[in-house]
Every structure is written in structure tokens, then in C-alpha cells.
């Protein structure tokens, strides 16, 4: 009888984390910026139909990088969670913190128990009446949650982009300034990203009810100047 092959738990976790990180590093990046008019999310996404940024609820948006089918499933699960809660209780009982907790639990569960971890990083953003109360939850493939202030970067070149963004970000940027900064920072040394390669979602601070909208085509062109 042969003894089963022993792999230490540390090694298993490390392998899984490396696997997930590799998958994410291959993908394109995304930034979210809190500003005076609301929260602007800018993604490097050449597709016009396969979105990375989506609406979850009245004041909550979702964004994901990495494997499309995986963050798409997480998005749908989030919409279900929010709509179910809003229907059972009231619309104002749905909040980003509880959603981020649910995501963290699911991601953590999958990371330790499933064959392979999700190769995704996700963002749960919630806009408030007062910019100081805005919330950006950045979740990693293993369920780690980070409560970010001001801005956050997800995806392949996250560290490099975050350093560059940290030097140029300031509080109270307008929608146009946020979109411009996002497009610049996601671009390479060769220049900004073209409009065709940008996906922009916006949580409007002053909108009554559903605050999320997509900014595209002419409106985006006008914003980027």
C-alpha cells in the first residue's frame, strides 16, 4: 500500500493564491475614484457588450476584473442578494457593507473548498449624500476585504497604477476630471486609452432612486474633451 501524497496546507494555499494571482495579472485593470459628483469607475475594456461594471442597487455598483464568467456570476449573485433584501425589508436596508461581507464569505469558501479558486478581484462601491460617507470595498480572490478611501485599483498592474494614481488623486474631483484621470492612468506610456477601449460607470450622488448609469459614446467623448 502506498502512502497518500502529503502536501502541507501552507503549500496548498500558496499554490492556490499563485494560481488566482496569475489569472488576475493577465487581465486588464480598473480604477474607481470618489469625487464631488459621485463615484466614477473606469475600466480598460475593449468590449462594448461584455461589461465589467454593473448596477447592483439604488446606490451600489459592482465591478470585476479577471475571469469574465466568474465575476459575472458574482454580479448576478449580488443583484439577487440586494433585490431579495430590498423586497423582504425595504430599499434603504440594502447596503454595500452587508453585500461585501456576503461576497467575502463566498470567495473565502470557494478559495478553501473548491477545486480551483476564483480568478477575480471585485469592487463594491456605494455612493452617499456626503462624499465622506462613500464606500469602496475591494475584495480579493480569497475573500480578503479592504475598505478603501478615495480611490482603488483592481487588476493586473494594480500596484504600479495605484502608485501613479496616488500622486495625482485629490479629493473633490468632478466627473469629467475623474474620467480623464482614469483614462490617463490606465493608458500606457504611449498615450491615454482610446474611448473605444474604455468602459465608464458612474454613481450619481444627487440622483433620486437608482444612481448608477453608464457613460458612453458622445457623453464620454465630451467628458474626455
Amino acid at each position: 500500500m502506498t502512502a497518500p501524497f502529503y502536501v502541507s496546507p501552507e503549500q496548498v494555499m500558496k499554490d492556490r493564491a499563485d494560481y488566482a494571482r496569475k489569472g488576475i495579472a493577465r487581465g486588464r485593470s480598473l480604477v474607481a475614484l470618489e469625487g464631488s459628483e459621485g463615484i466614477t469607475i473606469v475600466a480598460d475594456n475593449p468590449s462594448r457588450t461584455l461589461y465589467k461594471i454593473s448596477e447592483i442597487y439604488d446606490r451600489i455598483a459592482f465591478a470585476g476584473v479577471g475571469k469574465y464568467n466568474e465575476f459575472q456570476m458574482l454580479k448576478i449573485a449580488g443583484v439577487r442578494h440586494a433585490d431579495m433584501k430590498g423586497f423582504s425589508y425595504s430599499r434603504s436596508d440594502v447596503n454595500a457593507r452587508s453585500l461585501a461581507n456576503a461576497y467575502a464569505q463566498t470567495l473565502g469558501q470557494v478559495f478553501t473548498h473548491e477545486m480551483k479558486p476564483y480568478e477575480v478581484e471585485i469592487l463594491v462601491a456605494q455612493v452617499a449624500d456626503d462624499p465622506a460617507d462613500d464606500e469602496l470595498f475591494h475584495l480579493l480572490y480569497d475573500g480578503t476585504v479592504m475598505d478603501e478611501e478615495g480611490f482603488t485599483v483592481l487588476g493586473g498592474r494594480a500596484e504600479e497604477i495605484a502608485t501613479a494614481l496616488g500622486e495625482r488623486f485629490s479629493e473633490g474631483l468632478s466627473l469629467a476630471e475623474s474620467a480623464q484621470l482614469g483614462a490617463e492612468i490606465l493608458g500606457s506610456d504611449d498615450g491615454d486609452l482610446e474611448i473605444d477601449a474604455l468602459e465608464v460607470g458612474f454613481l450619481d450622488r444627487t440622483a433620486p432612486g437608482r444612481a448608477f448609469r453608464r457613460i458612453r459614446d458622445e457623453e464620454l467623448g465630451a467628458l474626455l474633451g
Binding site: 456570476m73 458574482l74 448576478i76 449573485a77 449580488g78 439577487r80 442578494h81 431579495m84 433584501k85 423582504s88 452587508s98 461581507n101 456576503a102 461576497y103 464569505q105 463566498t106
Partner: peptide, 11 residues
């Protein structure tokens, strides 16, 4: 029936 802290994943 409430899934307040677990997500209902599609599939």
C-alpha cells in the same frame, strides 16, 4: 428562506 449572509450563486 433569507440568505442574509450567504450568496445564491447562479448555475
Amino acid at each position: 428562506g433569507r440568505r442574509s449572509d450567504s450568496l445564491c450563486m447562479p448555475g
